[in-house]
Amino acid sequence: MRIGDLATRTQVSVRALRYYEEQGLLASTRSGGGQRLYEDAAVSRVRLIQQLYSAGLSSKTIADLMPCVDANESTPESRARLAAERDRIDAQIAELSIARDRLDDLIDVTSRPNPVCDYT
């Protein structure tokens, strides 16, 4: 399929798909006219890349993990890398939870008549 078709099927911009290729995350072949062509499996790969980006992984981390994904194997190094990313996300969740609780407190305080602003 062409790059536009892949973009439509994955709801990812053509620009992002080109970036994925530049980063070594996605591969294509070229038509006689030089257009990028992708296998059907590229749809699943782009969705995985998007999920990993959404989880906060960098393109370097994703590129480092893709050989294990492609080989369908797990190494101690890849598991450690994934565990470290999970721990980073857990820390972000904890920080966001604290921020949400602070906002709830502020909403409560400012919802009362004549609120006293004590944000400490």
Rank of each mutant, 00 (worst) to 15 (best):
R81I: 10
R112F: 01
Q51C: 14
E95D: 11
I93F: 13
L17K: 03
R100T: 01
V109M: 11
D87I: 01
R18D: 01
I3S: 14
R88H: 14
S97H: 12
A91I: 03
I49C: 09
Q35M: 09
V69P: 07
R45W: 08
Y20I: 01
D70M: 02
L6M: 04
M66W: 05
D87N: 11
V69G: 00
K60A: 15
I89A: 11
R18F: 06
R9C: 07
E85M: 07
S74C: 10
V14P: 03
A27N: 12
I89H: 10
D108F: 09
D90G: 00
R81C: 12
L48Y: 09
L82K: 08
N72A: 14
S74E: 10
R18S: 01
E21F: 05
T61G: 01
R79V: 10
A84Y: 04
G34A: 08
Q92W: 03
S13H: 03
A83S: 11
S28M: 03
M1R: 11
L17Q: 07
S97C: 01
Q51W: 10
M1I: 04
R102C: 00
T29V: 14
E39T: 09
Q11K: 12
A55Y: 02
T110I: 09
V109L: 11
Y19L: 15
T75R: 02
I3E: 13
E95N: 09
M1T: 08
L48H: 02
I107N: 05
L96I: 03
S59C: 11
I49S: 03
R86N: 08
R47T: 07
R9G: 03
K60L: 14
A99V: 01
G32P: 12
Y38I: 00
L25P: 08
A16Y: 02
R112T: 14
P115V: 05
